[in-house]
Design a protein around this nucleic acid. Structure first.
Lengths: 214, 214, 214, 214
DNA sequence: CATGAATGAGCATTCATTCAT
DNA sequence: TATGAATGAATGCTCATTCAT
């Protein structure tokens, strides 16, 4: 059950194919090594060997080992950002959008264990991450999108207006983290359908506007 | 509030006073270093320095750095094993015993962060741990005791008999882990009273035998 | 007061405008970097970056990093060679010419710290420098000119004829080096007027021909 | 003439033979390498190889490469400190003591080129040297001794009392540096007798008290 | 019971240099 | 004329571990 095969098979993944092959090979190498062990246990020698390049090349493309990690994180996030943008297209209703978003979020964790672990464990220990452009940009993009949908829900009466939208967002993100953390850390399978269903039921019960008639 | 001061003040802790002073000092040294940083970041030089002994002595008493960690883990577990044995003395009723056990388990995690982190994070990366006597022995002792109580509950009608006792045990242990993991990882405070109360309410509702009259 | 601004503003300096722009940019880049740090601390990456060219181009024009240094040295020396040729034009008397030469020599050190340091410190550690054309050619040009003037002085009775002209030259060059070395090494200001005045007074007293009547 | 063989043949040099052989070999190794090249050009690998030990051992005994350099410097200074203490014993008259001190100082530079270069060139680039105990201690020991003698000279009328003793000390130390710097840098021979004679004549003429009768 | 001395293997990182295009 | 891509060989430094005493 555990140790599910992940998704970075996408050699030709998200970045606009403009990078030199060496750089791509290095990033892919780290991605594949992250499947097996944590970042701290991976050496530059290993990265270079798996990538089939010299260690020196790593430092041509990345300031240091950590900058490489951030790049990998960024690539993963980029890849899913597009997915997120497409995902809520055509969905009517704020709650439905939220439901879809929650499902996708959990689905991403379910299918990309490396990304999940990176976000849950690795990145928190590096205080400089929070200054990195990757973080800033995710924060802006994803967090804002979430807030917009909540606002929309409040405006059109789907969501109660007596709770701060930011607090609602906090609860949603905390909830997602909560239902996935255990599984991510212990390499157990995540079932997006079930988890998102339960989570949404719980949260929506709290945030939905109770109209007089219903 | 988080980052609570821990409990390994017990210099003269559990082991039957039989160990030579050097060995004890080394184990205590690692314990105190584990309060500050994770095992991987602790060097043998540090351990020796804090213990006030030579590095070589570590290898007289322990096969390697990891064997020392297992010893420390064992000492902690020993220490709490006694506590567990005393704890349910005089308690009537399987559910009450379980309640006490859950509370104590969570309480241990709340008060010995080092042990909690060891169990949750450190030890899982060492596959050989599961072969170690420490693990085998804890598994037998603690797990068995739990099962005994569940069996007792089934026998005396407190607990429904249509669920496998082992499954019930699994749910209890998983539940405890579940409600503590997040806090342990992110160094947030754990409130044993609240957590065990909620957890027990949830679980007992499911496992309690619903007698006609009640 | 020390750390005087230097003179390699002469972008279009001595070389007969024949070099391709890339080559010129590389040499100028090294010159400007030498103002800030010593040769050993300058990397080819830096040189290329400041020059605005690729690292590879350096190796198109120069055998290696050191050959580039020799080229820079040569350019500086070229630049001052012209100055030396013009300088003694129109001056009457060997001693006056020598005085002018000494002043100019010191003046060059005072105003081009990079050149001074190159000559005093950098170049001596590279034994192959003494085989380089740059060295051979300077030796011939400048040293010979000096000797010619001394000879002229002896011939026309200004300078005593009982000391070998080469020894006199040696004393003059040694003296110049002597009065500048300390300042160059410790980055202290050099005062050409004062230093050359004192040096000439000292040396000329020794080499001047004492005629009966004077 | 240049490149005179130096004096660190003293394998069993100054330190109280209490150091382990590895540490001694490392220090001696650096000393011998400093005869050939400057500190910056010496690698830890070389030091270890010449010493016949592993690179790791260097870091057992010294914080880093620079700390090793300071240790070497300290050993040299220690060695000569004893010499200085004995040297002025039994000499009458402050000027005679100063003369002896100047001679010995120059003699040390003449016979230990490595030490001389260390002091003149290497150590100035490391700002942290001036915080090192080695520096503080030399400053105190040697500088103070010099000042004491000058004071003594002023008290007994040998030295004029209208110039600050510290200024006199400054002139003496600057003078010694002045007459040795060139030779040290260019690896030319130093003649202590001649240099100290000339230097003392020059300085003493200025600082000696001109009594009415003389 | 304890240690002083020593190290092999590895670490992230740097840099001058090469070569196909 | 110019460069993008790549690297071999170091560099200073760390650490768990061994062994004679």
């Amino acid at each position: 059950m555990a140790k599910s095969k992940n998704t970075n098979k996408s050699k030709s993944s998200s970045q606009a194919q403009s990078f030199p092959p060496g750089r791509i090979k290095i990033a892919e190498s780290l991605k594949s090594l992250l499947e097996e062990k944590e970042f701290g246990a991976i050496t530059t020698a290993e990265i270079a060997k798996v990538a089939g390049v010299s260690e020196a090349l790593i430092y041509k493309y990345f300031k240091d080992k950590r900058a490489l990690l951030y790049q990998v994180l960024k690539e993963y996030l980029d890849q899913y950002r597009m997915q997120f943008e497409l995902d809520i297209k055509g969905i009517k209703g704020a709650l439905n959008k939220l439901r879809k978003l929650v499902w996708t979020h959990i689905y991403v964790y379910a299918n990309n264990r490396v990304l999940a672990k990176l976000i849950f464990l690795e990145v928190r220990s590096f205080p400089d991450y929070y200054q990195s452009e990757t973080y800033q940009w995710v924060k802006k993009e994803y967090s804002k999108r979430l807030l917009d949908i909540i606002d929309e829900g409040i405006r059109n009466g789907e969501i109660r207006d007596d709770i701060s939208p930011k607090f609602i967002r906090q609860v949603i993100l905390g909830g997602i983290e909560h239902v996935c953390l255990r599984e991510v850390i212990f390499d157990q399978e995540i079932f997006p359908d079930e988890l998102s269903e339960n989570l949404c039921r719980l949260i929506f019960e709290g945030i939905e506007r109770k109209t007089a008639g219903s």
